[in-house]
Simulated assay, not measured.
Amino acid sequence: MFTFTSIDGLDVHVHEWPADTPPRGVVQIAHGMGEHAARYTPLARELAARGYAVYAGDHRGHGLTMRPGRPGVLGDDGWNLLVEDLAALTRIVRARHPGLPVVLLGHSLGSFAAQQYLLDHAALVDAAALSGTTAVDRLLAHLADSGGDVMAVFNGPFEPARTGADWLSRDESQVDAYIADPLCGFTLDEPSMGGLAAAATGRLAEPAGIPTGLPLYVLVGDRDPLNRRTELSSLAVERYRKAGLTDLTYRIYSGARHELFNETNRDEVVGDLTDWLDRVTA
Rank of each mutant, 00 (worst) to 15 (best):
V150S: 07
L260E: 02
D267L: 02
V175T: 08
A122K: 07
T134N: 03
P68M: 11
R138P: 00
L219A: 15
L130Y: 08
H258W: 01
S146C: 09
R162T: 13
A44W: 08
E238Q: 13
G25I: 09
L139W: 09
H59G: 04
V218N: 00
G164K: 12
I252G: 00
G209E: 06
P207M: 08
G255I: 02
T21Q: 14
A44R: 06
D126S: 14
G147N: 04
T274I: 15
A53F: 04
R229M: 09
A198E: 14
D275F: 06
G110C: 11
K242P: 00
P211T: 04
R203K: 11
T3C: 14
V102Q: 03
V26T: 07
Y55L: 07
T264A: 14
S173I: 05
T264S: 12
L43D: 03
L139D: 04
L260H: 01
Y178Q: 11
H13R: 12
L232W: 15
R94I: 06
I29N: 01
V73C: 13
D145T: 13
W17C: 09
G34E: 09
L232E: 07
S146V: 08
A19W: 10
A128Q: 02
V237F: 10
S169Y: 08
V93A: 09
N262I: 01
D120Y: 12
R257V: 04
V12M: 10
A123W: 11
P18D: 01
R229D: 14
A113H: 03
L124W: 11
D149R: 09
E238N: 09
L260S: 05
E46W: 01
P215R: 00
L277Q: 03
V220C: 15
N265I: 10
A37Q: 11
L100Y: 02
D166P: 08
A129C: 12
L168N: 00
T3K: 13
A282P: 11
D8V: 07
D181G: 08
V73K: 08
R251A: 07
L64I: 01
I29M: 10
G69T: 07
V136C: 04
H121G: 03
N262Q: 10
G63D: 06
D126R: 08
E231D: 14
A199S: 14
G110P: 07
F112D: 04
L43W: 06
I92Y: 02
A53G: 04
M1L: 12
R67Y: 07
A88W: 01
L82C: 13
G185T: 05
E35V: 04
W167Q: 05
L232R: 15
T65Q: 09
Y250R: 14
R239G: 13
R91A: 11
G271T: 10
A19H: 05
T3G: 13
R91M: 05
R60S: 09
P98K: 01
R170V: 09
S234Y: 06
A282Y: 00
T264P: 01
P207K: 10
H62Y: 08
L226N: 05
V102T: 12
A44K: 07
L277R: 10
P207W: 12
M66C: 15
G244E: 13
G32P: 03
N155W: 11
P157R: 02
A123E: 15
T163G: 04
D77V: 00
V27C: 12
A180N: 04
P211Y: 06
V73A: 15
A87H: 10
G202C: 02
R251G: 00
A48E: 00
P18H: 09
R203T: 12
